[in-house]
Design a protein around this nucleic acid. Structure first.
Lengths: 342, 342
DNA sequence: TTGAAAGCGCTAACAC
DNA sequence: GTGTTAGCGCTTTCAA
């Protein structure tokens, strides 16, 4: 139960100076083998643990990454987190993690607290509307590296990006549904009034409709936080619409899985009575019955690349990665039932 | 692009001493209002951000919690993480997070790196076999608070625990299946050779069989990492057993969802041909078709309580919380089909 | 190869 | 109220 153990105590025990202990730990080649051994032994006997934060302060560097996700309880962001962690372990970095819950005020406070911890870089899962300027400023002042993930590069931002084209992918999915003969297509989509990737998905949907000459109907577009419950509730409403959609694009797999449940509860067959499509290709998507047609996103890879980019030295050029996001056709979507529409 | 910004620069700009800046930030009531305002202004104009790590060092305290989960990509541990984060935000703590992947060596290295960051406490999702002694030692030396979650208190450990009775819950589930008439019950269970909670679930299963006079058959017990793929593969094997189980207890919902998929792929109806039960009650469990019979665990609450316990001052008494874990009966289990067995 | 000393960014006890 | 000073645990010149 010794109270405070520092390098000085190790130095005393090993009969060397403080500086020598430091050298023995970081560059043993600059110290005689016997001294290194004495220090190692003293360290072990005392149970000394190196203080990395003190070291970082003195060196004026940081080996901590700050990561912000909307919520840790979504397995999708968990995958990205996982990807980040596989890369940081080797690089000697640790990960400070927090969740924003799509709240701009909360996000700002969390960014502030991560900056106070002097993180080397900030990995942000999108930037909530209203915070772009602050993030922009941080990136410009180069106090910290900024990596935005899950979004396509925003040309005027000075941050790095690791994402994919949300709009393009959503357009592709909507077009696929149209090709199947659907013209009444509902949309359940994330908080587009707060985050860009949700808005881009909405945009993609819109554009596809427009190209096909299908009028946009706000009545069958539902904005919801990506969650099972929300998907179920939104689907329920859509299916109670007097002019019920024959297909529903739930632009997040959690929403889609919720939607499948709603359809089942109402006795509707999928895709017989209504087609359901998701977005993200969470692992669980292909385990649904029917398996979910969705957009494949490599959440894990996003994390890996983001971590690599984040760990680069301050002042390194920004990087932009645009990954693939492909349509994966499974069993939850099918041709419109003859006479099903209208 | 100014390089290094510290309190001293703020002091200069505000024409006060370094100490006054510190006071103005932490206890503004001890400084005149006009000075506080001058400091605030200088801080803002320079874009100064307080360095919390330096502060922590000097105060000899820490406001960081270290959290180790098996993997971040499992939504279940994501829930616990989520619970932890809701509590830490208010308390001014940050969360350093890492994943062990059920690997003892990796876990040891991660614990070491968290200790080097001088975390106030360590929240561990179980302790991999082979590491108990090290963790025990850490707790005894009181360098850091240790909170083990998802496990029932181990009487001889000096750490705190926030968990539930895994054995009891598994026994209860197995008994329920037996009550339904099943006597040939397969088990798919987590890495019991590495982590206690998986072993306890195995034990519970064993005890229930024993009480019912059903012989234990290692052929229909599969040890797998909790994952969808693993559950599917294990179920597939179980169903190819010449004396096929009429019920399968997958002691983790992910395994169970994988098992459901395997059954579907083989054209088996659940629960008609085979009953499937899970464990954990992940949110997605009730969204399956059929909805999963499982054990309800409040992963979120575990996180909340763990965080509270972890944030208590060093030297506070250890705490033990045993939460409920109840049987939730849904559609994936049913009575044995007459003539189905043997 | 090693030690002494200066100092990273900050706090707190003590004076004024 | 405010400034001065000593110092947290560590790294890194600079000399020896």
């Amino acid at each position: 139960m010794r109270s405070k153990l520092n390098m000085r105590e190790v130095a005393q025990k090993a009969n060397v100076s403080l500086a020598t202990v430091s050298r023995a730990m970081h560059s043993p080649d600059k110290v005689s083998a016997s001294t290194v051994e004495r220090v190692r032994k003293a360290t072990e006997e005392l149970g000394y643990v190196y203080n990395a934060t003190a070291g970082d302060i003195l060196r004026g560097r940081s080996t901590v990454l700050g990561v912000l996700v909307p919520t840790a309880s979504n397995a999708l962001f968990g995958e990205t987190l996982h990807g980040i962690q596989t890369m940081t372990v080797g690089g000697g970095y640790s990960v400070l993690q927090a969740a924003t819950h799509y709240d701009a005020d909360g996000e700002e406070a969390l960014i502030e607290s991560l900056l106070q911890r002097r993180v080397h870089a900030l990995i942000l899962t999108g930037v909530t509307y209203g915070l772009e300027e602050r993030v922009e400023q941080l990136a410009r002042e180069a106090r910290v590296r900024i990596v935005v993930v899950w979004e396509l590069p925003k040309p005027d931002m000075t941050a790095s990006y690791v994402g994919f084209d949300n709009m393009e992918a959503a357009r592709r999915m909507t077009e696929y549904l149209i090709e199947l003969g659907h013209r009444r297509i509902g949309l359940i989509v994330g908080p587009f009034s707060k985050i860009a990737r949700a808005r881009h998905r909405l945009e993609g949907y819109r554009i596809a409709l427009e190209r096909a000459g299908i009028p946009f109907d706000a009545d069958i577009v539902k904005e919801r936080s990506p969650g099972l419950l929300e998907g179920r509730e939104a689907m329920d409403r859509l299916m109670r619409n007097e002019d019920r959609p024959t297909a529903v694009f739930a632009a997040s797999d959690l929403l889609a899985i919720g939607a499948l449940k709603a359809a089942r509860s109402m006795g509707l067959s999928v895709p017989g009575d209504v087609s359901v499509a998701g977005f993200d290709d969470m692992e669980v998507a292909s385990y649904q019955d029917p398996p979910l047609t969705t957009i494949r996103v490599d959440a894990y890879k996003i994390g890996q690349i983001a971590a690599q980019t984040a760990m680069e030295p301050l002042g390194s050029p920004t990087r932009n990665y645009c990954l693939d996001a492909d349509l994966v056709i499974r069993g939850s979507t099918g041709p419109i039932k003859p006479g099903g529409g209208r």
